[in-house]
Design a protein around this nucleic acid. Structure first.
Lengths: 193, 193
DNA sequence: CTTAACCCTTAAACTATGTTAAGGGTATTT
DNA sequence: AAATACCCTTAACATAGTTTAAGGGTTAAG
């Protein structure tokens, strides 16, 4: 069952006891999501913390010119949320969309607050989840800052070999911050070598 | 006294009770830092969470070409740390350097862990600190992704009016991800309008 | 089975930003 | 007070990445 996958994932941090597991299970809802279905749109409030049981999502922003920028891909065993919207309860500036048929578990804001208040271990565990997410984002910024598009592409292939097969190049280009045409040029260069 | 500034800053989150305040005060060390002094260098381990009482720091990365990239400026009432190094206990890839004479309070890793374990409220408060930091970083990424250098400069001036006066343009350019020469060109364009 | 939607590549012209080099101005340091 | 280090600007030239446009291939939808 999918809840077991969630409980297992907490073992990476502080494992949950019986009581905590039950309280968590009671507050989690399972949902099937179709390809291209949104679980958050710009302007909406992010009301859930979401755990991906299977499938894959992209989190992206659309700029004034209408160009999509992929900020993150989120696949199995990882968490999705838009923190700014979730905690400040203000409209999201990003979209979260399934790029494959997916299965998720979601926790509503008041339910998460219930868990925080009644089991401090969740404060701890969600602190660690956010810390990890922060480190990932910081690494991405460091990467972008100090590499060319080609280097970023190569290290994307290296770091996410599974994703690079599952995603079209347009999506990868958007993640790398370049146009698909330029990615094409880069790929040609790489083959030459 | 500077510890009061720290305690006051927790009132933005969950206020501390008497016992928590005392336990915190016992585990905090005050340090004066000179201009240009490092509190963290690449390759070192980040062993402290640091609260800035007064002054200002820059957190930056040096790339293969030897170019400095400012990731953050941190001023009064804010926290500095290199999360990846602090929690994973691996060498830092960034430098943290005072750009003004400063006064800080630092907490050692084991002391922070003591506070986490004995007062769950610290788990909560530091969860919120990291969440805020994450949101800031995400905003920066969104900005960088969808604006020109000129737009980024204008919104930097807007968002950090105090910093823009305290910092030389070379530092601002490094934060914006452009060369000082190009910033110069931008400033000229802006004056023209 | 056919059409439409999407995806990938190429190439030429273009633009934002970087590089190099030089001159003059202000702070720090000696 | 002189010397050094740092900072800001300008301008000519270089380059990484974008834009536009076009052709062909593949997948999804009617």
């Amino acid at each position: 069952m999918s809840i077991n996958k969630l409980i297992a994932s907490f073992n990476n941090y502080l494992p949950l006891n019986q009581q905590e597991q039950e309280d968590l299970a009671k507050r989690v809802t399972e949902r099937r999501i179709k390809r291209r279905q949104f679980i958050l749109q710009e302007g909406d409030l992010c009301n859930h913390y979401i755990f991906v049981v299977e499938g894959c999502f992209k989190l992206y922003h659309i700029d004034k010119k209408g160009i999509e920028h992929n900020l993150q891909f989120i696949a199995e065993n990882d968490w999705i949320m838009e923190l700014d919207s979730f905690y400040s309860e203000k409209p999201s500036r990003v979209y979260i969309e399934a790029i494959e048929p997916s299965l998720i578990l979601q926790i509503k804001r008041p339910d998460l607050y219930y868990l925080f208040t009644n089991h401090p271990k969740f404060d701890r565990n969600f602190r660690v989840i956010v810390e990890n997410r922060y480190v990932e984002l910081e690494n991405r910024v460091l990467q972008n800052i100090s590499s060319t598009a080609e280097e970023r592409y190569l290290s994307f292939l290296d770091q996410y070999p599974h994703l690079s097969l599952r995603l079209p190049n347009t999506q990868i280009a958007s993640y790398l911050g370049i146009t698909p045409e330029f990615l094409s040029k880069i790929r040609k260069e790489i083959v030459k070598k």
